[in-house]
Design a protein around this nucleic acid. Structure first.
Lengths: 138, 138
DNA sequence: TTAATCCCTACTAAAAAGGTAGGATTTCTC
DNA sequence: GAGAAATCCTACCTTTTTAGTAGGGATTAA
């Protein structure tokens, strides 16, 4: 499973966007300061968020990003998937020539890891971006 | 969260041990061949399994490893925890000077990641080593 | 026209993952 | 007692991934 700071930065930035936007675009430099994430790194993250239709951008002065959909309709899994590509647990074929070549014993854990993967994805499917902004207010 | 091949190797090796042991110790070279994991790497993994009281060793010729407890009493989480030390999701303090310094907005994702962590641990708590050997027989 | 902003590409440093190498020690078997 | 089979132990190494940095170009509001 791939859950890195990049994924969390993306969630943080999206939560920031959801909390601070009133229709006006929010610039990355704002988010950079509030969340303390390097601007250049945020840019890379937002390119992916944009490609995946989670935010839309407006260029030029006073430009920035806004949510593409309401925060109630954005799942955390959408965000993680957008920036951390592979939200799969380790896959025998991909990560190792060894260990999984269709013999029963070797694939025992394959099944287990697949189940875990579904578990984690299920978790992030249930949580919406909106849920994070609510917590923010307590 | 830390779920690597090392953790899976450990689970595979333990499943192998549970499936093939009849009281006699199983040598790592056997497991190495059956599971196609390098012997030297297995040695490192088994040192940790031993420290955590999941296996016991007997040295010398005809030596090897046996389960310390019945396979019904060993949780997968025990195994993962033994070899992959930190079964925690990314922790602000550890992995980044940035991003989490007690401001509400920044810690939103902290809570989320902690919840996920509990979720994953809960998953691995439910599965016993014995469950994996049963699947093996189908 | 200028400054703020997104957009794009390439590079890089540090950490982690996934090992390898080489030897020391213990113990069974002959 | 010698030799082989095994665990034990420590150090090193290679590759991949992560988490950035650098430097500029394009766009647009004021």
């Amino acid at each position: 499973m791939k859950l890195t700071n990049k994924g969390r930065y993306a969630v943080m930035a999206m939560a920031d966007l959801a909390s601070n936007s009133n229709e006006r675009p929010i610039s990355l430099s704002e988010i950079s300061i509030r969340q303390n994430i390097s601007l250049a790194y945020l840019e890379q993250i937002f390119i992916k968020l944009k490609i995946n239709n989670l935010v839309k951008s407006s260029r030029g002065a006073n430009g920035g990003y806004t949510l593409f959909k309401p925060a109630t309709e954005i799942k955390i899994s959408n965000i993680i998937n957008a920036v951390d590509e592979e939200v799969k647990t380790l896959n025998c074929k991909k990560h190792s020539k060894r260990g999984c070549n269709n013999k029963a014993v070797k694939c025992i854990t394959h099944n287990l890891w697949d189940q875990l993967d579904q578990h984690i994805n299920g978790f992030f499917e249930k949580v919406k971006l909106q849920d994070l902004t609510k917590q923010n207010q307590k």
